[in-house]
Design a protein around this nucleic acid. Structure first.
Length: 297
RNA sequence: GCCUUGGUAGCUCAGUCGGUAGAGCAGUAGACUGAAAAUCUACGUGUCGGUGGUUCGAUUCCGCCCCAAGGCA
């Protein structure tokens, strides 16, 4: 039996993937499933670079604005909801476009990570939080010296401990649920950096700092904001005085976003099935060629 | 014109009591299956401003020159 087909559009922030996704979905009668870990939150718009209703041009978007700021959301939540959204789109005879820059989320759906249905143990995580990373790694090795992890990677070591406690540890497994055409969007490095700077300036003008202030005023915890990283972390640090001036914050944030774009590319480059589209040529036409061939196969 | 303080990695600087040098930031490559815009790993040759001198040996000491900032005229 043939698996249902979906189209994936991946790329870094400020790459123009959302716009391309809309154009393509428009042409092929598709709907968009966003794969972005921050854009699921209501009211986190400028800071997450969320597409505006105007820019959607009537194309339905899924998995935006589905959680309140402060609520827990994970890759597994995303996978479950994305499967639901995609299956629904398919059932209505339309073409699903998975569009986003959160590599882990894209992979969880496109590669089909096999996850257990056990919920995360947030209480245990809090307990683990009180230990130094070295101690956490020692605890892990005491139980399972055979497991290979980066000993310095705190989050990963903690998650494995959590899984062991729940008797839920197994090596990574995957089984894709869909047949996916994967496309990635690229820019020449310096051009991308310039786009990132321009977009940052524009969002600041549009009130990104006020957006963060508003969320804090509304009672969203500082800790939650800091954990979101980049825009939300650094603007919160500016507002709480940890970063002294706006100019300093903007410099740091610009650098951090560029580093992040680099990490996004590192993630996506690993996937050899991605067809790369040069955004300085004609990405729309190239994508249409790929999609036509894919749908005909 | 004189005095002072500087001129060392793309940037900010440290350092060498004379044996050709190292941090942070930036940059590059990578890892990463339940917080992922998270969390981590690896990578540092640069006429040590120029030029003479002293010395076995100078980026380091001395002379002169150039440049920058500040002060005095």
């Amino acid at each position: 039996m043939q698996k249902p087909k979906i189209i994936v559009v991946a790329g870094t922030n400020a790459s123009g993937k959302s716009g391309l996704g809309v154009e393509l979905a428009h042409k092929y009668g598709g709907e968009i499933v966003s794969a972005d870990s921050r854009q699921v939150y209501i009211g986190m718009d400028l800071g997450s670079g969320k597409i505006t209703p105007d820019e959607m041009k009537g194309v339905p978007h899924h998995l935006l604005d589905i959680r309140s700021p402060g609520e827990f959301f994970s890759m597994a939540d995303f996978q479950r909801l994305a499967y639901e959204a995609i299956d629904d789109i398919l059932q209505r005879g339309r073409l699903p476009f998975l569009v986003g820059g959160t590599g882990l989320y894209v992979a969880a759906v496109a590669d089909g990570y096999l996850l257990s249905d056990k919920a995360p143990d947030l209480t245990y995580r809090q307990e683990l939080e009180t230990y130094q990373t070295e101690a956490l790694y020692a605890m892990l090795m005491a139980q399972r010296p055979d497991i290979e992890v980066d000993a310095c990677n705190r989050n990963r070591v903690m998650r494995i401990l959590e899984r062991l406690k729940a008797d839920d540890y197994h090596p990574a497994q995957k089984e894709s649920r869909y047949d996916s055409l994967r496309m990635g969007v690229t820019w020449e490095r310096d051009v991308l950096k310039q786009r990132i700077d321009e977009r940052l300036t524009r969002r600041l003008d549009e009130g990104m700092i006020q957006e963060v202030q508003g969320l804090l005023d509304a009672g969203v915890s500082e800790g939650f904001m800091l954990g979101l990283g980049l825009e939300y972390r650094m603007i919160t640090e500016l507002l709480t005085g940890k970063i002294p001036t706006e100019a300093e914050m903007v410099t740091q944030l610009g650098n951090a976003i560029k580093k992040f774009a680099k990490r996004q590319m590192t993630w996506f480059r690993r996937d050899e099935s991605i067809h790369w589209l040069d955004m300085e040529k004609d990405p729309f036409e190239a994508a249409c060629g790929l999609i036509d061939a894919f749908l005909a196969s």
